[in-house]
Design a protein around this nucleic acid. Structure first.
Lengths: 122, 122
DNA sequence: TCCGTTCGATTACATATGTAGTCGTATCGA
DNA sequence: TCGATACGACTACATATGTAATCGAACGGA
């Protein structure tokens, strides 16, 4: 399975999922707004992600071009499943029920989900 | 807000949410099956949870009776929101869409969610 | 009364994580 | 050619986390 990606590492992954390949400097630039890290910090995160084999790099002259090795969709699926397992006994329906109860679903959300489920049943 | 609860700590919280108050030994007994921790480990986790002020304890003779200070529902809401924010741009509908696409919704789930949404709209 | 047991408190220690700083080298502009 | 700059590699260091061991006090049974 894919190794655990930390919160900080995840921000770097998002940059790479959005656009790849990128140099370290480009990643730093893209996460600057949300996190404000130094370039050094970004480089550390990139090498940790390399060590975890969730990103790869190809040499481009003197620097590296980084790109994700794991699919965002696979990651999202894994994380969603982990949450559902940990907090909802592995069943997705209670999650939706919970979101609903907490008023975390807008009217639009509800309409979208209904349409989605209807489509699923065909 | 409520301090971050780690994975191991979460297992202890679940024991306390299920039944409280409990002594350290009782908690250890209840998490034994799933985690197999020593009593010492459980005690460490309990004191960390105390430090984080997410559980409290009342003295009972020579030992303590621990109980949650945070509601499970509030915790679940927080964690769900964190996931939705991190991975789905803060919108719940895409989460449900994702679960659906990944075939993580059983027919029963779908039926339940539909019923739930219908009720919500009244 | 003495001994083993049990408690909470304190200490331990490896790994993970957040957040850089430093170093040696290569490159590029003056 | 020389100095500033940029790169990756290595090092740093505080805090969090997983997983206990140890310690001193108190209790409970022989």
């Amino acid at each position: 399975m894919t190794e655990k990606i930390s919160d900080a590492e995840h921000a770097v992954m998002e940059a790479l999922w959005e656009s790849a390949p990128l140099t370290a400097a480009e990643v730093a630039e893209r996460v600057q707004a949300s996190r404000g890290w130094s370039i050094q910090t970004v480089k550390t995160l990139l090498s940790r992600l390399m060590a975890k084999r969730v990103i790869g790099a190809e040499q481009d002259g003197r620097r590296f071009l980084y790109r994700p090795l794991v699919d965002r969709d696979a990651y999202v699926t894994g994380e969603s499943r982990r949450l559902v397992d940990r907090l909802f006994g592995g069943r997705a329906a209670p999650l939706v029920a919970h979101l609903a109860q907490q008023d975390q679903l807008s009217d639009q959300d509800i309409a979208e989900i209904e349409a989605l489920l209807k489509a699923l049943k065909q």
